[in-house]
Design a binder for these strands. Structure first.
Length: 717
DNA sequence: AACACCGCGTTTTTT
DNA sequence: ACGCGGTGTT
């Protein structure tokens, strides 16, 4: 391949980054500036020009999707398989590493991955055993705490408990959790990173081996790395200035889950010879959209500094719509989408972006009413569904009878007469004999410690698992899955479930068999049997959210999930103080800037046309609220904005008397007013005219009041 | 084991 | 408002 193919298609900044000498590099890549392109071409450059072997390359991303895209594009550009390269997610790669060095990492070769649901259940079980009060110490919070510590690289033993009794409690559970995981060979997501880091740190020979191997380290979305991820990268690089990191401090929106933008500064300090390249030319959006986004983000302090520009035209102005309530907002958005789609555009090129998932409902209802197909992102992933997890639990029991997490899950699912009393007895036996639940169950039966009925039921369960194990032995993976699905009784169980839910679950279980059939195992070099490999895959790649993807439908998602995507037409909705920025972000210092970045991310998704909407009143948690327009709207220069004056024909919040047209009424719906006694409020409706008009107002202080215009002395605000 | 009731919380998500 | 999860009832 010619050198030309690698760099000819790049702009100056991109080319500078791609063809830089082999030292460390920080690429500040703005939204839509071609960052993946730079990473992909850099890999090609390293191989074709610097003479790197595929095996010398480590390229890390956050999501499976990004990793798959990277691999695909590298293969396309180089025209060769990427087999020898380590391209993958932090979790995928550290998992591979731990499988290879399980023994050195003091893990059994058969260690299992605990997903967050498994983790939660395990923590709860432990807390019950320890007699910790769940009300005072919510398991969710404990889980959060444990993961937070692990993400910071801290073991229970490294943490000073201090005097706070709550903290001491958290720490105690953490320690117990660590011990249990170690004993049962369980590894949670954060542990994959932490364990890998510790193994390298404490094993100089191994570290040297991997350092020698990975001569080039590339990192995508660097601003999203957390402490342990950076520590791991740093260890592998160790002062050799061989890291090529790409990120955008303005798109750091995951601080709340441990991401550290400051890693960018640490990187600069740890790699004094690094170069910085800014990718500021944007290939996605119009001038108006970029101008607005630039101005918005300029309100943040301490940025690395970056300003997007385009060779493209100014395009249409951003439309701002002030709805009077959330219904009106949804109506407006759906109307615009309908018109847009009727004028020949694809629905899939339109997206509605919101701050919180709860906001999707209104839009869904409206879209449904308008018979416009849509797809909501997020929600449960395939491998996270209860029925799938149940099916997998049977498979896990087949692979390993001592998998307590799975035992707990399916011992009475479907119900087979093994009640709480029986399971409690098994737990107690397991604890005192420090054995697995499976072993405990066997010894309880042998010692005839149960009433005949319970004993029979438990025996039937043990026989079922053994039977499934025997029957599926030496069968292909998908056969095993099929056998489990058919004979576990799960299908009959879900058939009894009323409504469409049960049917959907059965379909999902059948889908599990086809997922197993499609699962390609050869690419897995580890010495892991096919079943265990499939189970790891299920934990690490939760799969798509929705099974049925329509070809052409409007996209609904949170601003967070929109990162990395682009759409011709974008609606960012609910731009109100308290909603976006959210209440918590306003009160907790430092959170506001992240919120602003989120808005920036949302706006820069739009290619051709951007709509921003907010409502004057909104039902929130069952109460009517009257939020102010988001401060972010004020931070966008007016020259980029065009207010939509026309109000769509609306469904009103309360029945408005039809005899009063809106134009005649002195007080429009949504008009803010001030009353001497009641304070500020919002007009809901007006009946009659002139001084005798009755005006219904919702006051912030006292709620809805009906006043006579002549006496009320209302001041319009 | 299925069903009803009650109380609580309620940004954002990947692996 | 609403849904979820936990508890108590039949």
């Amino acid at each position: 391949m010619e050198l030309n193919t690698i760099i000819a298609s790049l702009n100056d900044a991109q080319r500078e980054a791609v063809s830089a000498p082999k030292n460390s590099m920080l690429v500040l890549a703005g939204a839509g500036s071609g960052k993946t392109r730079v990473l992909v071409h850099r890999i090609a450059w390293l191989i074709k020009v610097e003479g790197a072997f595929p095996g010398n390359i480590l390229s890390v991303t956050f999501t499976n999707k990004a990793a798959a895209e990277m691999r695909g594009r590298v293969e396309l550009l180089l025209g060769m398989p990427t087999g020898g390269m380590w391209i993958g997610t932090f979790h995928g790669l550290t998992h591979r590493f731990l499988r290879r060095h399980a023994a050195e990492a003091k893990l059994p070769g058969t260690f299992q991955i605990l997903d967050s649901d498994d983790q939660y259940r395990l923590i709860r079980r432990l807390m019950k055993n320890m007699g910790v009060d769940e009300a005072r110490c919510p398991p969710r919070q404990v889980q959060w705490f444990i993961n937070e510590q692990k993400d910071e690289g801290l073991r229970a033993a490294n943490i000073d408990a201090g005097m706070d009794p709550f903290r001491r409690q958290l720490l105690k559970v953490y320690a117990e959790y660590e011990a249990t995981c170690q004993r049962s060979g369980l590894v949670d997501f954060a542990e994959l990173l932490l364990r890998s880091f510790e193994l390298l740190r404490d094993n100089p020979a191994l570290l040297e081996e991997y350092q020698a191997r990975f001569r080039y380290i590339l990192v995508d979305e660097f601003q999203d790395t957390n402490a342990i991820q950076y520590a791991w990268l740093r260890l592998l690089s160790q002062g050799r200035e061989n890291m090529f990191v790409v990120g955008d401090d303005d798109q750091s929106i995951y601080g709340w889950r441990g991401a550290r933008v400051e890693n960018i500064h640490s990187f600069q300090k740890d790699n004094p010879a690094h170069k910085v390249v800014r990718l500021e030319q944007n290939y996605r959006s119009t001038g108006n959209i970029l101008g607005a986004a630039n101005s918005l983000i300029a309100n943040n302090q301490g940025r690395m500094g970056k300003e997007l520009w385009t060779e493209d035209s100014e395009g249409e102005k951003i439309s701002l719509y002030n709805a009077f309530n959330e219904q009106d907002e949804a109506h407006f958005v759906v109307e615009r989408i309908r018109k847009w789609s009727e004028s020949g555009n694809s629905r899939k090129d339109a997206a509605i972006l919101y701050r919180s998932n709860a906001q999707s409902r209104l839009f869904e209802e409206r879209l449904m009413a308008a018979a416009i197909p849509y797809r909501v992102y997020g929600g449960q992933r395939f491998f996270d569904r209860a029925e799938i997890k149940n099916g997998l639990a049977y498979l896990r029991m087949i692979a390993n009878r001592n998998d307590d997490t799975s035992f707990e899950r399916i011992v009475n699912t479907p119900t087979r007469g093994i009640g709480n009393r029986t399971v409690d007895l098994i737990r107690a036996e397991a604890q005192s004999a420090s054995s697995s639940l499976w072993e405990a169950a066997i010894s309880i039966i042998n010692r005839k410690q149960l009433p005949a009925r319970a004993s029979n039921a438990l025996n039937a369960f043990l026989a079922l698992i053994n039977g499934l194990g025997g029957e599926s032995k030496d069968k292909a993976l998908f056969e095993k899955v099929r056998i489990v699905v058919e004979k576990s009784g799960l299908i009959e169980h879900y058939k009894k479930e009323k409504g469409e839910k049960g049917e959907a679950r059965i379909e999902n279980l059948q889908e599990l068999a086809s997922a197993a059939k499609q699962f390609s195992w050869e690419e897995n070099e580890e010495e892991l049997d096919e079943l265990s490999s499939f189970l790891a895959h299920a934990a690490l790649e939760a799969g798509e959210g929705q099974a049925d993807e329509y070809d052409d439908c409007v996209q609904l998602m949170t601003l967070h999930s929109a990162k990395g995507l682009e759409f011709k037409l974008v609606f960012v909705v609910g731009l109100e103080e308290g909603l976006f920025p959210g209440e918590r972000s306003i009160t907790e210092p430092g959170r506001l800037e992240e919120e602003r970045r989120l808005c920036y991310v949302g706006m820069t998704r739009a290619m051709e046309k951007l709509y921003l909407t907010y409502a004057e009143s909104r039902r929130l948690y069952g109460r009517e609220t009257y939020p102010k327009a988001s401060r972010f709207l004020r931070e966008i220069p007016v020259e980029h904005i065009e207010e939509v004056r026309m109000r769509a024909t609306v469904s009103r919040p309360v029945s408005v008397t039809s005899s009063v047209s809106q134009r005649e009424a002195e007080y429009q719906l949504g008009q803010r007013v001030k009353h001497l006694k009641f304070g500020e409020g919002v007009v809901l409706q007006q009946e009659g005219e002139g001084d005798s008009a009755q005006i219904q107002i919702n006051f912030h202080s006292v709620g809805i009041k009906t006043l006579v215009a002549g006496y009320a002395k209302l001041e319009k605000l």
